[in-house]
Design a protein around this nucleic acid. Structure first.
Length: 650
DNA sequence: ACTGTTTTGTA
DNA sequence: ACAAAACAG
């Protein structure tokens, strides 16, 4: 209990006072100094994007005032090295203990382990806790003690663990402040002037901070949750939980979400409300996927840059920055894709269904390297989350044991019929198509010329007369209203002298990094060609893969499937071509420099440094009233695609 | 009402 | 790939 000096509670992505085990431990031990260290350089290329930093800024100030109410301020430090900043805080406060909660992204796994080593060596007591997951990744194993390789089995196990997730902790009643008189806070700068104006609109739609997260949770549970199973795939409606950014920053604990939602489920089950019960199962599954993303990251710490399955190792990705740009700008010629990309740019948010559509289009139609798309999501999403996004992109790319098959395309036209049947979503984000009848809204290339011209004319007249009813909102939220992040400042060098280097023995299994050191033993220089290296650790064992029985990429059986699959099939000459090449290429190491090209190991610069605002929206400089027709301005789909056109099975 | 076939949904 | 649901006859 009493150990002389005070305790440091190191806040990271657990920005809450409720159900925060590290904070609770600190409070139990006596006087507490709460610290947040902003060291974005440590994140390397995963320096948070504008909207994500906006959220962080607000969440921190919310946390600070909560902590002050409880008795102690939040100390903030600007740093390029979290661990040395921690040591400074230790010195200036006389702390003897440090508590923090676990993170599972690759950088944190290593950094936190190193922090433990260094601080312990200094005589500091270090304790770390689970605050982010229902169960720690190392606690969820099959009957042989091995980690699961598919989501279904993983989640089934989670739901049937012999013990329940820990019950959520209440917030402390008060906090005895440690002495911070010689430990001044740095002012943290998360946005510059240009970003401020862009960010101003965000506050209309979102309220960061742990108590707001609780409100969002309550609202969801008492409202949309019961209809979740019916509504969840409507692109437009407010039927999702909107919890993801709150969860990313740990403003609300997953354990609490789980408990509250389960209580509701029991209640509905007793009432015999089948739909409600089913809705809860589906919602919990999405919580489960979040858990799974941490699980994957822990077991395969480079899954954010390397496919789990190797069968696409030789796929000739189209390394075309022009396609990449067209996708980003929402001018692929496919209404649903374009609408989604513009919404993402304008708001930092996308419905899950639309994420699937745009990323599937990216990987399957444009055939761009998935890491490029993932990086763009990272830079633009309000709820950007390395583990979740890596899982999502690998799932879409077909490089997970239970992901979508590589051959499966989510045709934007048909997805549009399903998730945007009235075309309202497309019309909101593509003003050019606002006057197009619903019949053609998801496939304008089939519309009769006269219809296109009429819609176009109507649009233009309306814009000129300023009578565009119903579009007021879109005028505001269209990309043009969101001056872009011209200022994402300086490029952040890939971390050179970061803690990833060097081999280390990991004994403390509570710091889940033992797999990482082995993977990371290779030099950073070779990281982009890591696929060809001998490291088999991060690849899922082929025998675990239910639909593959050979080690060889996509065996004959799978090829047959590819050919037989009648749903949305593309012509598969390309597939056969590269598969054959893969099979014939016995010297995997021979072309490592080419591979660098092929797998898009290097993400092209897309942000303002490389393209300024008018460049990014070159076709939209006139905003809503753009003068040339959609189809003309966005060179048709068919030309953009590598296989002549998306198959039309309708 | 019954049954074989097609479509749909899936992490 | 596969089960459930929708559909056709």
């Amino acid at each position: 209990m009493s150990s002389g000096g005070c305790s440091i509670v190191w806040f990271r992505r657990d920005l809450r006072v409720e159900d925060n085990p590290a904070l609770a431990a600190g409070v139990r031990a006596g006087a507490v100094v709460g610290v947040f260290i902003w060291a974005p350089e440590e994140e390397g290329q995963y320096y948070p994007g504008r909207v994500s930093r906006w959220w962080l800024k607000n969440s921190l100030s919310h946390l600070d005032s909560s902590l002050r109410n409880l008795g102690t301020p939040l100390v903030t430090k600007r740093s390029t090295d979290s661990i040395s900043s921690l040591l400074q805080v230790v010195k200036s406060t006389g702390a003897t203990q440090i508590f923090f909660n676990h993170l599972y992204d690759p950088l944190s796994l290593v950094r936190d382990h190193r922090a433990k080593e260094i601080l312990t060596a200094q005589g500091i007591t270090v304790r770390s806790y689970n605050s982010d997951l229902l169960y720690e990744p190392w606690d969820v194993n099959d009957e042989h003690g091995q980690p699961f390789t598919t989501f279904d089995s993983f989640w089934e196990r989670c739901l049937s663990m012999p013990y329940d997730p820990q019950a959520p902790l209440l917030p402390p009643k008060r906090i005895i402040p440690g002495d911070v008189s010689r430990c001044p806070s740095d002012t943290l700068v998360f946005e510059d002037e240009l970003e401020k104006s862009s960010n101003a609109l965000l506050a209309r739609a979102w309220s960061p901070g742990w108590s707001n997260a609780n409100k969002a949770l309550t609202t969801f549970i008492n409202g949309p949750l019961i209809e979740y199973s019916v509504n969840r795939r409507k692109a437009d409606s407010a039927t999702t939980s909107f919890l993801s950014p709150h969860l990313h920053f740990g403003e609300v604990s997953v354990k609490k979400v789980f408990h509250l939602v389960r209580i509701k489920q029991v209640f509905w089950a007793n009432e015999g409300n089948k739909a409600g019960e089913e809705s809860v199962n589906l919602f919990l599954k999405s919580i489960g996927l979040r858990e799974y993303s941490r699980y994957i990251s822990f077991n395969h710490p480079n899954s954010h840059e390397r496919p789990l399955l190797g069968h696409l190792k030789f796929f000739p990705w189209v390394v075309d920055e022009g396609y990449f740009k067209a996708w980003r700008q929402g001018r692929t010629g496919y209404p649903l894709v374009d609408a989604g990309m513009r919404e993402l740019w304008a708001t930092g948010w996308l419905h899950d269904r639309i994420r699937v559509v745009v990323s599937s289009f990216f990987v399957k139609v444009l055939q761009l390297p998935w890491r490029w798309g993932m990086k763009y999501f990272w830079d633009t999403l309000l709820d950007a989350d390395l583990e979740s996004d890596a899982l999502g992109w690998q799932y879409i790319s077909g490089t997970l044991p239970d992901g979508r098959e590589f051959d499966r395309i989510d045709n934007p036209q048909f997805e549009g019929y399903k998730c945007d049947p009235n075309g309202e979503y497309v019309r909101r984000w593509l003003p050019e198509l606002a006057r197009l009848p619903t019949e053609w809204i998801h496939h304008p290339w089939n519309a009769p010329e006269s219809v296109l011209q009429a819609a176009e004319a109507a649009s233009r007249t309306a814009a000129e007369n300023g009578t565009e009813e119903g579009l007021g909102d879109s005028t505001e939220s269209a990309p043009i209203a969101f001056p872009q992040d011209i200022q994402m400042e300086e490029r952040h060098e890939p971390v050179r002298n970061n803690p990833l280097h060097g081999t280390r023995r990991y004994q403390d299994q509570m710091v889940p990094s033992m797999t990482y050191s082995r993977v990371r033993a290779e030099d950073e220089e070779t990281s982009s060609v890591r696929n060809s290296a001998g490291d088999s650790r991060a690849e899922v064992p082929t025998n675990a893969n239910t639909r593959q029985n050979g080690r060889e990429p996509m065996d004959q059986g799978m090829l047959q499937n590819v050919n037989r699959n009648t749903r949305q099939r593309r012509n598969n000459t390309t597939t056969t071509f590269w598969l054959r090449n893969a099979a014939e290429d016995s010297t995997a190491e021979s072309s490592s420099s080419m591979r660098r090209e092929r797998d898009g190991g290097v993400v092209p610069e897309w942000s303002p440094q490389a393209s300024n605002f008018s460049d990014q929206f070159v076709d939209d400089e006139n905003g809503i009233g753009a003068t040339s027709p959609y189809l003309q301005r966005h060179p048709q789909s068919h030309q953009m695609m590598s296989w002549t056109r998306l198959p039309q099975t309708g």
